[in-house]
Design a protein around this nucleic acid. Structure first.
Lengths: 202, 202, 202, 202
DNA sequence: GATGAATGAGTTTTCATTCAT
DNA sequence: CATGAATGAAAACTCATTCAT
């Protein structure tokens, strides 16, 4: 059975290799330019081989999305559930700092992850949309718990609404950093936390 | 000269016809499915004619983007520079209400504005980025004026930062309304104004 | 409007050109080997151009099938409804002779037309199957009328059953001629008519 | 030598396993969808192993064809050479009944037997043609013997021609039953025998 | 100016066959 | 012997762009 196990491990390894290659293509060429051809070339595999590991392009794309999301989720969870005794404010600072880091210099990742939810009305990408919605829901639940831990009686709005505002502020600063007018300046997590927290508190 | 002018006017008219057609295609088929074929058909023009008015598809996309932006900008300006004597809070409420309206009946516009960034080639993104940056700058100037009119000494952050936060909150509520978890509820402009204003005030 | 008409005529002409090219590919390479590439090459057109005239490969195949069928049907009708006063026996002789002629040296047509009904369980070809079934039904009706014209009270079996037997005998002689043991000999229509007619008569 | 013999026996056993698997795939997925992948999976063998037993896919197909033919041939022989003292008519009834049975439960066999001709490359067809011709010749010899046993001086046509007509009638009733217009009705062997016998008798 | 037929490179996907292990 | 990962040559289909008329 050890052979079988090794095989399985190797298979997982290959999948990771392919996803890594796909991420590189994504990073360099953007979502619209990802093609199975390029991924194969980058992974130093034949086109056909990709289909040994991923049913089709959509499934591969979804796995990329999922992987990035899992990575981000893990980081969020790590911060939220860390033992350190921190004020909510400090936690949010850390959280924002991490998110900014996560996307730093990875415009394409940011675009991809934020637009998976929105665009892509091509039939092919329906499942990606579902995946993105699911992630959004999960993220919501995580943040909800965080908010409930602290001053829960002092919020003016629901955790859902707080969460939407919170993420909106972060996202738009990143958009403006990547594409807009906020290029030169460093985004200060403290500012974002402050705007958000004072905005939603009674 | 009059002939030349008339020509020019006709040309602009044709361009608007094409853009309108493109927006209709966008609304019906989604961003990923806009094709020159369909636009031509919808505009009741030949495919070749499209290229008489727009250098290529990307330029056409940019003009659509620009047109939408201009439309939105005009509405923003109208509200801001209206004679009514209103509190800042009331003005923001009106502004947000208008933006929600603007996109509500035209989800695809919203998708388009967000997706213009991914759906196109990298070369294209450069141009679109410029367009978006320009718009952002303009919008900033408009908002700056608004903020300067009121309580200018009570803000904790720069008008640029305020603007980014403001738009981020609005945008993300729209995203979650159209595609995510905020489906059932109506977005209340007052809430968004409140979160924002209290967040950025000293 | 004359321009439009001319255009339409030219379009039909092109369709014919493509079908003719496809028929040549069919004749030379067999059904399993028809590819859009080869048809395009043979028609001296680009691959893309084929799709200006036929929605997809299946539609093109169906038109080939239909065209061949129409040709055959016309020939059958011509014989059946000819003014000549002939005995049923003589009509059937003529009919069989024509069918043998129609397929002579066109193995691939024969194979294609006979197997369209049967095989091709690929999803893509469902419509072709329907087309083939419809043709079979039409052919039935035509033959039914013929049989009803003559000695209708002397048949032991239904016109449907007669028709099936009739076509079966002809088809299998062709099969054996093309692929089997009846290569050297010329198929004598009189023999087929005789076997059939005496077989089904009271 | 005994080892060698055992080896050979095992090899034949494996071949049968593979053919059985292929037939299962055929039944489930249809002729157009048989792939070496699926056969291997169904046979619980590796794809590579298939090539140890069959030179290539075409050879495998031919062996299936051959195997089915042998099976059918055996059943035909059993009926013809059975000790029962039966009239020719009764024998033919039995024969037809058996053939109808043989295919009825296995529509896909019937499809396969008919489709082997189109589904494959031209090169392949040569081989398959040979196989089919050989089978046809054998079948002819078998039927010849049967016909010679009975009333041999009363036939109007050669045993070859009789055979072709006989099989044509049966085949076409099956085609129309499985795919065409003869769906609802049960095929009565007596009718087929009657049509045939009266058709070929002086 | 306007047309729309034609192009051709690009895209995803399939699958028989091979070969290192 | 046996494996199954990998190949690579198809295949169908799309679409921005060009150009003869």
């Amino acid at each position: 059975m050890s052979t079988k196990e090794r095989r399985e491990r190797e298979k997982q390894q290959r999948k990771r290799t392919i996803i890594k290659a796909a991420l590189e293509v994504l990073r360099e060429d953007g979502f619209a330019r990802i093609s199975m051809d390029k991924i194969a070339e980058r992974a130093e595999l034949s086109k056909g081989a990709l289909y040994l590991y991923f049913e089709n392009k959509e499934k591969l794309i979804i796995e990329i999305f999922w992987m990035l999301m899992e990575k981000l989720k893990k980081k969020i969870k790590d911060i939220i559930s860390s033992d350190e005794k921190l004020e909510l404010e400090e936690k949010l600072n850390k959280l924002i700092g991490m998110v900014l880091d996560f996307y730093s210099n990875e415009v394409e990742f940011f675009v991809f992850m934020n637009n998976a939810l929105i665009g892509l009305s091509s039939d092919m990408m329906q499942e990606l949309k579902k995946t993105a919605v699911n992630f959004s829901i999960e993220l919501n639940e995580i943040m909800e718990k965080l908010f409930e831990e602290y001053n829960q009686d002092r919020y003016k709005y629901s955790t859902l609404e707080m969460n939407i505002a919170f993420r909106g502020i972060i996202k738009n600063f990143l958009v403006e950093k990547f594409f807009g007018v906020y290029k030169q300046e460093k985004i200060r997590p403290e500012m974002l936390t402050d705007i958000f927290l004072r905005g939603v508190m009674k």
